[in-house]
């Protein structure tokens, strides 16, 4: 990517904002459809997520009197921008597209932290006490899952494999580098450490997307949507679009780092669709078969068994397993 036009296309169209938001809304329809099937309902038509966003976009903007209005209204857009860029980088690596991306795994991890942060800051800046409760829960959840998520994803970069007769690890944080290493040595999920890392990352993904059992931050029956309590109309629509973009970005990132040995090949791209869909279906099934846990239980879960599993995965990866 050398020209400015290519950058714009990369971010705004493919594989960035337009692609990720569109795909994310389709995947969110899949989520609703599978959830409905689990509950013996028919579920909505495929156009429903698009219509929901369109309807919200047409509403008036309501600002709470206690808020910091500039931040309250700007945070959804910051969330969307960061999520779009993270999606573009993740899909760029997952698809094995040509050209050098402007960021690596660390950049993607930090960009993916921005949408939750924007929701947290938006909830806090609303001046609503329930928004603040939601913000605090959201932050605690972020604290919980970021530690094991980082450890699990680093398995892709530090898994020792036999390459060309010698043992080596990718040793780079470049998503392209990790993909190329897997093309040489095989998928990271081909080893026990990779499978464990994928399972850990899936759980973290569940929390990152705010899906049950880790939806304490919104918990509409407890704190009336928490950090989003004061959001309505277009700002809420942008947050919903951001959620959709994240739903498209997170599975792509997991696949790009841990399951990406065939990136860039025609067969690999076809398989990618199946892998992403499989990840989404797993997330939806977990969502529909578990009740919401308390925030302290969630934190203990992530800092306890999940972090232990992630640490074990990293250890096994370093040992070449």
């Amino acid at each position: 990517m050398d020209g400015f036009g290519e950058w714009i296309w990369f971010l705004l169209v493919f594989p960035g904002a337009a692609f990720a938001a569109g795909l994310g809304l389709v995947l969110s329809w899949a989520d609703r459809k599978v959830s409905a099937m689990v509950q013996w309902r028919r579920g909505p038509p495929p156009s429903q997520p698009f219509l929901d966003v369109a309807k919200l976009l047409g509403k008036e903007v309501v600002v709470p009197a206690t808020s910091w209005p500039a931040g309250f209204l700007a945070f959804p857009f910051a969330a969307f921008a960061a999520a779009s860029l993270a999606a573009a980088l993740s899909w760029h690596a997952a698809l094995g597209l040509p050209g050098r991306a402007p960021g690596d795994l660390v950049v993607v991890l930090y960009l993916l932290a921005v949408p939750p942060l924007a929701a947290i800051l938006g909830g806090a800046a609303s001046g609503n006490p329930l928004g603040a409760v939601g913000a605090s829960r959201h932050m605690v959840l972020v604290l919980g899952y970021e530690l094991p998520l980082a450890a699990a994803l680093l398995v892709g970069a530090f898994q020792v494999r036999t390459v060309g007769g010698g043992e080596a690890a990718a040793g780079t944080l470049s998503l392209e580098g990790i993909a190329r290493f897997q093309a040489l040595a095989g998928d990271a999920v081909g080893r026990p450490s990779g499978i464990l890392a994928l399972l850990v990352a899936l759980l973290c993904c569940q929390a990152k997307l705010g899906l049950v059992p880790f939806d304490q931050a919104e918990a509409d029956t407890e704190i009336a949507e928490g950090a989003f309590i004061e959001y309505s109309g277009p700002p809420l629509a942008i947050f919903r679009l951001t959620q959709a973009v994240l739903l498209a970005a997170m599975p792509a990132l997991l696949v790009a780092v841990l399951w990406n040995g065939s990136a860039g090949t025609p067969g690999g791209r076809a398989a990618l669709a199946g892998k992403v869909l499989l990840v989404v279906v797993l997330l939806v099934l977990v969502k529909n078969t578990n009740p919401r846990v308390r925030i302290d239980q969630a934190l203990r879960f992530f800092w306890g068994p999940v972090t232990a599993a992630a640490a074990l995965a990293l250890l096994l990866a370093r040992m070449g397993w």
């Binding site: 991306a101 960021g103 020792v160 780079t172 040595a185």
Partner: peptide, 12 residues
Amino acid sequence: PAPAADLPGGVL
């Protein structure tokens, strides 16, 4: 451990 040959480093 030596990084695998000719893999690109992280970019920012």
